[in-house]
């Protein structure tokens, strides 16, 4: 996420329960929330914001399956095609002995793949500097943000009323 030159109107709340109640009000009034920022994962937030369940675990399964096939296939190829050697009188294709490494690579591929996917889809990574609205969001403030471009001036005053009504501690605008 680079600087998008978006003007954002945001309100800070002191408690996640007040935040959840405020979002319920926003949903009732059909206000289009841009994003919600919290210092820790707040349970019950996703359904209120209409966020679909993350598909990261499906990606994890695919990466894992890729690891399984890579490991098992590679060892099979080495010991039956490329350089067959007899170890301790066992068959070339000694599948049970391939299981430990197959398992380890399944886990390794899945973990690395998921972590890389996670940072990629979230737009995070070493050195990335995403604009933040307020320094206290990672401490003890819970934030609801609206993109002002989607609202006309009198609608904006309605948003400010909404913040006041639902118990926001502070209301500010910021370009991000």
């Amino acid at each position: 996420m680079k600087k998008q030159n978006k003007e954002v109107l945001y309100g800070l709340y002191n408690d996640e329960e007040i935040l959840l109640d405020a979002i319920k009000v926003a949903n009732k009034d059909h206000l289009d929330i841009m994003d919600v920022y919290t210092p820790f994962p707040v349970h019950g937030l996703d359904p209120l914001l209409g966020l679909e369940e993350s598909r990261l675990h499906i990606a994890g399964f695919v990466y894992g399956a890729l690891g399984t096939l890579t490991a098992f296939g590679f060892m099979t190829w080495v010991f039956t095609r490329d350089w067959p050697i007899i170890f301790g009188g066992k068959p070339y294709f000694s599948a049970p002995a391939f299981i430990p490494i197959t398992f380890e690579l399944t886990v390794l591929f899945s973990a690395i793949g998921m972590v890389v996917s996670f940072y990629t889809v979230c737009g995070l990574g070493p050195g990335t500097e995403n604009p933040t609205l307020d320094d206290r969001i990672t401490d003890d403030k819970f934030c609801i943000a609206f993109d002002t471009a989607a609202y006309s001036n009198d609608q904006l005053s309605k948003l400010k009323d909404f913040f006041k009504q639902t118990g926001a501690e502070e209301v500010n605008t910021k370009m991000i």
């Binding site: 996420m1 820790f40 707040v42 889809v121 979230c122 995070l124």
Partner: peptide
């Protein structure tokens, strides 16, 4: 890594 605390990010993080 540019963490913002966005709701979607927390969901994926969990």
């Amino acid at each position: 890594f540019g963490w913002t605390g966005s709701a979607k990010h927390w969901q994926r993080w969990e």
